[in-house]
Amino acid sequence: MLVHSRKGRWTAWLFFFVLFLPLFALPFLVVVMASFATHWSGAFPSHATFAHYRDVTHGDSLHALTTSLLTALAASLLALVIGTWAALAAERLRGAARRVLDGLFMLPVAVPSVVVGLSLLVAFSQPPFLLNGTARIVVLAHTVLVTAFAYQSVSAALSRLDPAYEQSAASLGARPATVLWRIRIPLLLPSLTAAAGLCFALSMGELSATMMLYPPDWVPLPVRIYGATSRGSLFEGAALAVVLMLTTLVVLLGMSRVRTRASYR
């Protein structure tokens, strides 16, 4: 313990919560409060209503939610497959080749998402690949952006995996493919579900590249939230934001449940 006096500890805690609560807790609180209101002219919002949530259950908002869910599902699955494959391939490499692969797969984190969107717009509006104006280009952009995170978490998990398991399996006569399917993938499962959850969450909230690419019939939730707030419907935007956060949270929790159920030791 760093601070020994009772007074000192209370000072530290007071300092912590004076900073922490308004900065990190208040934002979530006000968004939730606003989502149930139609006016905010005093210290607190007024005119409580469930109307915004009723709107989410049908029409364009519902469509935006399913669009986001489908996009996130497709992008996170694709990213998981590509990222896992690349991480497994990278593990067999040494030296410069390994560093090049690491750098390459982490590069999409460094490049601004808006630029990733722009580049896909430029590349896939012309032959030989015409994807502009389709849902696929949105999924592609999300995949590019989240693959780096899948790659990173699977790589980290691989480096933590005890080689004794695969060696024992090999000594028992299991070929590399069997070792991969029966031993390594099951042992990696907790990390894979965690990576999938992270990718899903990031894709659910992706706005920058999507703003560059979305076709009129494939409007994900973040774009819809932006649309609502920019035309002044802040309270509707707040309700949509709560739906976005809840969905993300449910998926993350679900994934972490899978994780605890599948984790060993």
């Binding site: 004794a164 090999a170 028992l172 590399p176 042992l187 599948a262």
Partner: peptide
């Protein structure tokens, strides 16, 4: 020969039982 073709039994210090 790769390990999986050698047909040997092996027991290591930490046992390495497959936890799943």
């Amino acid at each position: 020969l790769p390990p999986y073709k050698r047909g040997i039994g092996m027991v290591v210090q930490q046992y390495a039982l497959f936890p799943h």
